[in-house]
Nucleic acid binder design. Sequence first.
RNA 1: GGGAGUGUAGCUCAGUCGGUAGAGCAACGGCCUUUUAAGCCGUAGGUCCUGGGUUCGAGUCCCAGCACUCUCACCA
Length: 488
Amino acid sequence: MTIQADSDKFEQQRQEKREKLEALGLDPYGLRYDDVEAAEAVKERFKDEEERQHARCAGRIVLLRDIGKLIFITLRDRSGTIQVGLSKKMLNEQWTLAKLLDLGDIIGASGQLGRTRTGEITIWVEEDGLAFLSKCLAQPPEKFHGLADIDQRYRQRYVDLWANPEVMGRFIKRSAITTTIRQHLESRGFLEVETPMMQAIAGGAAARPFITHHNSLDLDLYLRISPELFLKRLLVGGLERVFEINRNFRNEGLSRWHNPEFTMLELYQAYGDYHDMMDLTEELISACVAAHCNGPEVKFGDLDIDLSGRWRRAKYADLLWEHAGCDIGDLQAVREKARALELDEAGMDDAVVVNEVFEATVEHHLVNPTFVIDYPAVLCPLTKRSKENPNYAERFELFIARMELANAYTELNDPTQQYENFMIQLRGQEETMATMDHDYITALKYGMPPAGGLGIGIDRLVMVLTGVTSIRDVILFPLLKPVGPENA
RNA sequence: GGGAGUGUAGCUCAGUCGGUAGAGCAACGGCCUUUUAAGCCGUAGGUCCUGGGUUCGAGUCCCAGCACUCUCACCA
């Protein structure tokens, strides 16, 4: 279902209006329109200053009230709305045009500012002050409820954005959040880089990749599941502090928390470790909260989340003890707990059972920001092991609102150890198309500085900071199945 | 992939026990110079998601399919 079909009668009617405009010598798809001021900025500047002022705005007609020889329009641009008043007496010849306006048309309006009886700030369009910028041929959605059908909102985001102002606001905020992150990182000497999205070896994570094909090389390539191994090559090259904010692609199921393509911030800091990454994570997210949220308390569905202060840092093993009641070293007890949770533990490796129990018992308690630190080393093939206890890896995951939001390590820079870990990881992972990345090992042989590395899921961060519980509401065009012509 | 739910006018939604398809907004025609989801009078608008089946008769009941939502599974 789309809003309008070619044969649509509404479109016919609007086409006729378009032809009337053309008959009057007007281009219904107008030219450049200079010196446009944001609607909200106009209202702001007129708020205190009541003297005669001129204004010039452009935007889409979202409400239209025709009361005879006077027309009131609510004009929306990306800043908000402003009322435009058109009067027959003031417009003279252009009054004919005013009467041809439809909901959804994009117009320019210039004239003196004034207030109506009820105090609404209004641009009273002067003679020749009305410009047709684009005729809307499709029927706009209902003015009060907007576009509510979720499927249609995602498929026709171009309508959703102006029909539902909070949607536009959310995506503007998303952009502002990544800007804040970039500024923060650049001020700390990080360099933004871009690494391959198409990779011959899909490494840096355990996930099934998408496959694509290069024709003239006759070469199968993978869409990256992670930029990690390339970014760390840059540490070998000496760039020392690098970050990338871009898409990863994972060929997995869809859910409220998963879109097949999603945006990650990944960064690497030479001579640091995972403690630095914890501090940096806290700083980055706190900076976003300070800049883009109304206070550190945010609502997320039914959850109230407090993002203030220093966040809890809790060891993986301690959390397991706290919520599952078993000692991570007591595999008997862990397997018993797994059976009690009705997990099918019989065929699983010990470490997998531990992690399953952890996920089943601990994660849903992690509502306020919590750094889960010191993961079992076997779960972390790219992470340096803890000096005090080599069974654990210097890794943390940050949970907020029960979601995994960030993942960071002290990076493993020993090529011999890395090679062994890859070999272990490759066993029994045919499905993920995992292949040994020999060049990465070679890179490590040249020497990679000790480093901290961090990944933050930008989509999920935006979810938390905007309070929406579906990842599709923070992605402009989430993946949907195409609608066949028989369903159109 | 499993389970549950939703799909009716351009949009938002009603539709009783199986008996002629409804409202508001939008549209079209008319009135109206300070409206605020403007108002008043009138008109028009339907592949009831698709395809089968049951029935004298299906928007409604049954079967299959499609899309979306929730949920489970998958998922560093």
